[in-house]
Structure formats: C-alpha cells, structure tokens
Computed example of a mutant assay.
Amino acid sequence: MRLQSKNAKIYVAGHRGMVGRGIWHHLREAGYTNLVGRTSDELDLRDPHASRRFFEDEQPDFVVLAAARVGGILANDRYPADFLGDNLAIEQSVIQAAHEVGVERLVFLGSTCIYPKHAPQPMPEDSLLTGPLEPTNQWYAVAKIAGHKLCEGLHRQHGDDMVTLMPTNLYGPGDDFDLETSHVLPALLRKTHEAKSRKPSRPDGSDAPVTLWGSGEPKREFLYVDDLADAVRFVLETPEEEIHEVAPDGMLNVGVGEDLSINDLMTLIQDVVGHHGPVEHDESKPDGTPRKLVDTSRMDALGWTAQTSLRNGIEQTYDWYREHEEELIEA
C-alpha cells in the first residue's frame, strides 16, 4: 500500500546516518511529520527481541531500513565478520518485525556492490547472482543480497509489500570523512583539502601532492544523498502494482545513468577545492571493481530521475566538510 496520508507513521531506521538523516529531512520537507527514529544507543537493531518490542509499541505504518554498518575498501577488508554479521542481524531483525506487525510497506536500502564484479554495464537488476562478487566488499554484499532476498521471499510467500532500492555510490553532507573507513569520494575530498591547506607549499609554489589508491582507471557513478532521499519518497508514494509491473522481484536500481574514472573524479575535486598540485598513485592498493554503472531503466519507467549534478553535489559536500572540519578531525 502506497504512502498517501501526511499523518502516516514512518519509521526511518538509521536516521542519524548520512542516508537516514537525508531521508528524514526530505520527508519532513514533503510534509510528513509523524516520523519515528531511534539512535543505536536507544535501540540495538541487531537484537531481534528489542526490535520486536519497538515495533509492537510504535506500530509504524511504513518503514525505511537505512540502518547498516558501512565503510570503504579498507574497512571491509579489516572487519569482514562485522560487516557480514552486523548487517545480517539488522536486516533479519527489522524486516521480520515489520512482517510480524503488518507494516503497510517497507523500503530496504541495499547497494550496487551486490552485483557481480564483471556484471554487464550498465548493471541491470537481473544480473544479481550471475557471477562472483568483488572480493574487497563481498562481506557487505552478501549481507545486502540476503536482505533483499528476505524482502522478496516475504512478498512471494505472504504478500508483504516490500521494495529494495539499490543505490549507486552515495556521497553528500554528513558523509564519513575518516580515512580509515570512508568511501572514495569523501576520502579524496578530505585528502585534497588537507594537501591544499598544508603549509608551506612546495618550492615551485604548488600544493602538496594527493595520493590516489590504485591506477585511478576504474569508473564509478555517484549519487547525491538528497537525490536518494527523493527516490525513497517517490517509491513510498508509488502504487504497489506499478512497482511490481516494472520490478517483479521488487528491486530498483537508483543512479544517475553516467559514470567517470577515479582519475577524472580527482580532477573535478581538485577544481572544486582549488588544489594545484600533483596526484600520485599508490598502485600497491586495490582498484576494486573495474566499473560500476547501474541500469536505471526501471526507475526511469516509473518516472523518477536524479536532479543533482556531480559538480554541484561535490560543492555542497565540500561546503559542509569545511563547516564541520574541526569536529570531524577531533572525532
């Protein structure tokens, strides 16, 4: 059942993270005021009993599952059991509780890392499980695949209205800028800013160099977080039969439909930051998947497209980073 009433109770799981916060603010701006959220200190979503009590007490009409343990290549490699175990536990706990109390619709947020390393480009939803995963993020990917399959299974077996959105690489205000755990765009934005800020500059007057992992040749697609929030609202408001007409498995890619190399991303970030210095490649580090561009034909058919250009999104993200730089470094 689609979202129609502005008074409907909507539970946003993970509302303090970058994605959940964006969804929360976007829904409020759209006039939905009956929003429910809990911090991880207030509710451990890995605990199925605590989650069930929460759902029984609050009785949400709609659920957006944006809570997850996330991180870049380095974090995935260092903490494989945590990325697999924590995400499986969160998904099982929340999705099962939503089923048991009979929510009207649940939107589960996955990730395009679920697709095979050498999936056809752009990647269609039906390429899922057709080949091996990228080893550097397989733990997170397996968990997200399981979450989608649980939603699909509950729809097939019990008729539950559950939809999975597979967003491409996300970025925006509130992103993780910790170089140990961040994804490529915020990591490069911070590195470039710090290289420009380093004093004194090099003897020739140029800024300090920025080190780029790998060859810089892999291509990536980037989606601004506010666009994903708009896609979530759009899907919540779309009739179930329209969604399943274009997506029988309940899975929808969310992207912008174009990508660029990491080297070209680096050039764009240098231009936004105003960095005039060399870029050095550390080719001892992995490249990851060669290309990740999603096929957005299903969302296109429903009538939704992203609105934020990559440059505009990076500029807004950089403004936010400079405003919060001191607290981010102290953290």
Rank of each mutant, 00 (worst) to 15 (best):
D77T: 10
G159T: 15
E125T: 14
S111W: 13
I95F: 13
E152D: 13
R156G: 06
G102R: 05
A97Y: 06
A143W: 08
L88S: 01
K149E: 13
I114C: 09
D77R: 13
M123V: 12
G110S: 15
S93P: 08
G71V: 09
G159S: 11
L150M: 07
L129I: 04
V103Y: 02
Q121R: 09
A98S: 08
I95W: 14
Y79M: 03
C151D: 12
N87W: 04
H158R: 11
C113T: 09
I114L: 14
A97W: 15
K144L: 01
L74P: 06
H99A: 09
Q92M: 07
H99V: 00
S111V: 09
D77S: 08
Y115L: 06
D160G: 03
G71N: 07
V70A: 15
A81H: 10
V142N: 13
M123E: 13
L74N: 08
C151L: 13
H155G: 12
I114R: 04
C151S: 06
D161T: 12
D86W: 07
H148V: 00
M162C: 03
A89S: 10
P116H: 05
G153E: 03
C113N: 14
P135K: 15
C151F: 11
L74M: 11
P80H: 09
L129M: 04
M123L: 02
Q138P: 05
R78H: 08
L74E: 14
E152L: 06
D160S: 13
V103L: 01
V101N: 03
R69Y: 10
I114G: 01
L133M: 01
N87R: 14
H158V: 01
F108E: 07
Q92F: 12
G153V: 00
P132K: 05
A146Y: 04
V107D: 01
G85P: 15
D82Y: 02
K117W: 04
T112Q: 13
F83K: 06
V70Q: 15
G159Y: 15
V101Y: 11
D160H: 11
S93L: 09
K117G: 00
L154G: 02
L150P: 02
Q96W: 07
L150Q: 12
C151Q: 11
Y79F: 10
A98H: 14
Q157P: 00
A89F: 07
A141H: 10
P120R: 15
I114A: 08
K117V: 03
A119L: 05
Q92S: 09
I95N: 01
R156L: 12
L109C: 12
L150D: 00
D82Q: 14
H99P: 02
N137Y: 12
Q157D: 10
L150S: 00
E91P: 00
G102D: 10
E91T: 10
V142T: 10
P80W: 12
Q157M: 15
R78P: 04
G131F: 08
D82I: 15
Q138K: 14
G147Q: 12
I145D: 02
I95T: 11
G110I: 00
G102V: 02
